[in-house]
Amino acid sequence: MIELQDIKKGFADKEILKGVSAVMESGKVNLIIGASGSGKTVMMKCIVGLMGVGSGKILYDNQDFTAMDDKEKKVVRQEIGMLFQGSALFDSMTVEQNVMFPLDMFGKGTLRDKKKRVAECLERVQLMEAAKKFPAEISGGMKKRVGIARAIVLNPKYLFCDEPNSGLDPQTSLLIDKLITELTKEYNITTVINTHDMNTVMESGDHIVYMYQGQKQWEGSNKDIIFSKDQKLNDFIFASEFLREAKEMRQLDIFKDNKWRDQLKNKEGNASGK
Rank of each mutant, 00 (worst) to 15 (best):
M1G: 09
D6C: 00
D6F: 00
D6Q: 07
K9S: 01
D13Q: 14
E15A: 10
E15M: 15
E25F: 14
N30Q: 08
G37F: 04
K40E: 01
V42M: 12
L50R: 09
G52R: 07
V53T: 15
I58S: 02
Y60R: 08
Q63S: 10
F65V: 06
I80C: 14
F84T: 06
S87T: 06
A88Y: 07
M93K: 14
M93L: 15
N98S: 07
D104Q: 13
M105Q: 12
G107D: 08
G109W: 03
K114G: 12
V118H: 08
A119L: 05
A119H: 14
K133C: 09
E137K: 13
K143E: 00
R145I: 03
A149H: 11
I152H: 08
P156D: 12
D162G: 05
D162M: 01
S166M: 05
D169L: 11
P170Y: 02
Q171H: 02
L174W: 12
E182N: 13
L183Q: 04
V192P: 04
N194G: 04
T195A: 12
M198S: 05
M202H: 14
S204H: 04
H207R: 15
I208D: 11
Y212I: 01
Q213T: 02
E219S: 15
N222Y: 02
F227G: 08
K232E: 14
F238G: 04
R244D: 08
R250I: 02
L252I: 15
K265P: 00
S272L: 15
S272P: 00
